[in-house]
Each structure stands twice: as structure tokens, then as C-alpha cells.
Simulated scan of single mutants.
Amino acid sequence: MRPGAEPGEGGQRFGHTELPPEQAHALRRAKRLEVVTLVYMASAVAVVFATAGSSQAMKTAWVEDSLALVPPLAFLVAVRFGHRRPDADHPYGYHRSTGVGHLTAAVALLAVGLLLAVESAMSLARAEHPPIGTVQLFGQTFWAGWLMVAAMTYTGIGPFVLGRMKLPLAEALHDKVLYADADMQKADWMTAAGTIAGVLGIGLGLWWADSSAALLISLSIVHDGWTNLRHATTALMDERARTYDDEHPHPLTRRVDEVLTNLTWVDDSRSRVRDQGHVFHVEAFVRPVAGRAPTLEQLEAAVSVLSDLDWKVHDVVVMPVRDLPDTIPAPD
């Protein structure tokens, strides 16, 4: 456990980093929500499959709902691996499992989205007219499109609610897989709305509405896949640590140097902070004040001060140097 950290509730941890109570609670809640998501989306996949008929938009929505199972699975697997402590073969621990899960989900989204986009565009070019017939249910005969609309209403409401519930947990845990899952689910109502518009368009005699809706849904999947692929790839290439949503450099990257330069024996500091998954690895190069070589106690105190900044500061190395590395720019 890092110095100064309070033990997490119920022994929740990432590697050998014990989580504070807030993050321990968030992790348990996130795992429960992801299990609920898997069950809900599995039911949604079954409902859409049963009502899809010949609608291209419904088939595309079915594939998207099936893909929605990947991020929750990736999160649960990554968290399970992330619990493992460092060993001889993995001295940095298993925190990168989050990045692997993020990359896996992104590749699946992008590849399938591109295939669906091509198929939808070809259907539109061929001017296909998908028929929607009638069905008998409880002794009543009615247009099958109403079943499709009901199915898409069901698949749109749940993800919207679950996505909004996951967003604050993704921030608390600094989990990019959970954030990607939450962000995509939060926007799933647009897929449902587009599919409903396509089905109703068929009912109104607008043959192109179905394929157009399918194409728009496909392009949405491609956008999600490309965005997540870009973020997952740059993270695995040791880009400097960024916020959970990848919008900005993480504030801790600046705080590390600010804290070190406030120490009496430090003249200047440059650090490298990389995101290992949920936690950060910090390599700090410090130039001591002239004539004041740091003692072992001072170096240990510097490590302790950085570790106390935040629970995410996991591995810390403080290296006194004569000259600061040219390859590390000054903090923003």
C-alpha cells in the first residue's frame, strides 16, 4: 500500500494499491452496474433479433446492441486482472490490462462499424425496398413495425440511464474503459431514435429511410470505434497522463513538479507521468540547490510527498541530477 493511503473498504485494490473508501465504493458499484448492463443488453439483443424482420436499420441496431456487450466484459476482465499484484514477470503489475481492454473494444467497434457502413451504403445504392408485414399477437393482427418501435424504445431507455450512472464512477476510478462504455451507452438513444425513424419511414412509403438510418447508425459506431482506438493507442504508447475522458492533460502531471520545486533542497524539477491504467507511474528528475546534495531521508520524504498527492500516484522514482533532461518540457 502506498504511504499515507487509507485502506479501501473491503480490501478493494488495484495491484498493491489499496483504494480509498470513495474509490472502493465506486469500484463495487461499477462492477454491479456492468453486470446489470450485460443482462439488460443481452435481453435487448434477443428482443431486437426477434422483431428485426427485413429492416436494415433494425439489423444494424441489433449488431450495435451486440457490440455493447464488449465494453462491460472488457471492464470486468480488466478489473479482475488489475487486482493481481506485481510479480517477477510483471514488475509494474497488471494495470495495463485496462488499456488492452480499451483497445479490444475499440477495434471491435471500428471493424464492425465499417462493415455495416459499407453494407448499408450498398443497400441504399441498390434502392432496396424492405417489406414490413403484419403479425398476429393475442388474437390481434397489426403492423409489425409497431413491434419494432416498441423493441427500440426498450433498447434505448436502459442504456441511456445506465450510461449516466456510470460516468461519475469512471471519473472516480480514472477508468477509460468504463468511460467509453458509459459515453457510448449514454448516446444509444440516438441509435434507437434513428431506427424508429427508419421503420416509420418504411410505413410511410419512404423506402430510403431504412437504409439511411442504418448508414447513420453505422457511422456512429465507426466514430465511437475510431475515437476509442485513437485514445487507447496513444495511452499504450506512453502518452503523458490525461484525464479519464482524454480531454486534457491530467492536473497531477503539473502538480508533481510544483510540489517538488517547493522542497527546500530542490532548485528545479522535470517529471514523466504515464498512465498505467488506473494508476500513474512517476519518474521525477530533480536538480538540487547548488551545494545541497539530498540525503536519503530527503529523497524518501520527496517520494512520500508525491505519493500523498493522490491515490492514483502509484510508483514513484525521484532521481537527483546535475542537468534536467532536454526531452522533458517544462510543465504547462
Rank of each mutant, 00 (worst) to 15 (best):
G93M: 03
M41P: 00
L73C: 13
G277D: 09
G205T: 04
S269I: 01
V199R: 00
T17D: 08
D224T: 15
W143K: 05
W311I: 07
D268A: 15
R322D: 15
K176I: 02
S120C: 07
L204I: 01
A50E: 07
D183V: 04
M122Q: 15
R126C: 02
V45N: 01
A180Y: 03
V112W: 00
A50R: 13
P3N: 06
R274G: 00
H250G: 00
E247V: 09
Y179E: 04
R32I: 14
G145C: 01
E128M: 05
R274W: 04
A192L: 05
P7S: 12
L38G: 05
R270E: 11
L173A: 06
A61L: 11
R230C: 09
L110T: 08
A26Q: 06
H95A: 15
W143V: 12
A214Y: 02
F138N: 12
A50S: 14
E64T: 04
G203I: 00
G93S: 08
D224L: 07
V70L: 11
R32H: 01
L76H: 03
L73I: 14
R242F: 00
G4A: 09
R164H: 12
G145W: 00
A117L: 10
K31C: 09
Q23I: 05
P21T: 02
V318D: 12
A61V: 06
L296F: 05
A209F: 05
A235F: 02
P131S: 12
Y40S: 14
I217P: 03
V282P: 08
W208L: 08
S220H: 11
T17Q: 14
E171Y: 10
P3G: 02
F142N: 12
S220K: 11
L38S: 04
A24L: 08
A284C: 06
W189Y: 13
S54G: 10
V321P: 01
G101A: 01
P7Y: 06
G113N: 00
D257A: 15
V77N: 03
Y244V: 14
D326M: 03
P131K: 10
V79W: 07
V79H: 10
S211E: 07
